[in-house]
Amino acid sequence: MALEPRITLVTLGVADVAASTAFYRKLGFRRSSASNDSVTFFHMNGTVLGLFGHEALAADAGLDAGPAPSFRGVSLAHNLGSRDEVDAAWTFAVECGAKPVKKPEEVFWGGYSGYFADPDGHLWELAHNPFAQLDENGHMTLPD
């Protein structure tokens, strides 16, 4: 058996579910009624973003939580249709309380991107990739 290549849910371990929920709602994310005090789910146009306590998420995986590192080796990306859209989204995220990590700029691979971090340090990249088109739903399309 092979796994179908898809991601249905990304869960972020957070220090304070309520505070992180408020941050993502400021960004405009729509909270699901399936959420409760322990976990929040956001509709994400084909996937779901979950917020769960850092220690609870580690325990669910059978791991010791330990302190959250400053760099987790992963980023979440939101691709946009133009450089101007990247600039506007980055400014908006910072106005909503995101920590500015890297102001949008031209990058080595030929695109344009910047990074911000949520209240728990999870990295988000905002990017315009001129080599990958976005479909009508905002999904990135790649050549075969």
Results as ranks from 00 to 15, higher is better:
85 E>D: 12
68 A>G: 05
35 S>D: 05
80 L>Y: 06
35 S>R: 05
90 W>D: 01
38 S>M: 11
26 K>G: 01
38 S>A: 14
68 A>I: 13
64 D>M: 00
36 N>H: 13
74 V>G: 07
24 Y>N: 02
63 L>D: 03
60 D>W: 02
78 H>V: 14
56 A>Q: 01
54 H>Q: 10
35 S>L: 03
72 R>L: 14
47 T>F: 12
68 A>W: 01
87 D>P: 13
36 N>S: 15
52 F>M: 14
30 R>Y: 04
47 T>N: 10
69 P>T: 02
73 G>S: 09
47 T>K: 06
78 H>W: 14
52 F>V: 07
76 L>H: 11
50 G>R: 00
89 A>H: 12
78 H>E: 12
64 D>A: 05
90 W>V: 00
87 D>N: 15
66 G>Q: 03
85 E>F: 04
26 K>M: 09
83 R>G: 06
58 A>K: 01
72 R>C: 15
68 A>V: 08
36 N>I: 09
92 F>A: 13
41 F>Q: 02
29 F>G: 10
37 D>G: 11
23 F>P: 04
70 S>F: 09
42 F>E: 05
73 G>N: 09
28 G>P: 15
28 G>L: 07
46 G>P: 13
46 G>A: 08
71 F>I: 15
83 R>T: 10
40 T>R: 00
54 H>N: 06
46 G>C: 04
32 S>W: 01
61 A>Q: 09
57 L>R: 00
56 A>T: 00
31 R>L: 15
57 L>M: 08
51 L>F: 03
44 M>R: 06
30 R>A: 14
68 A>D: 06
32 S>D: 06
76 L>M: 15
81 G>C: 12
57 L>E: 03
27 L>D: 03
78 H>T: 11
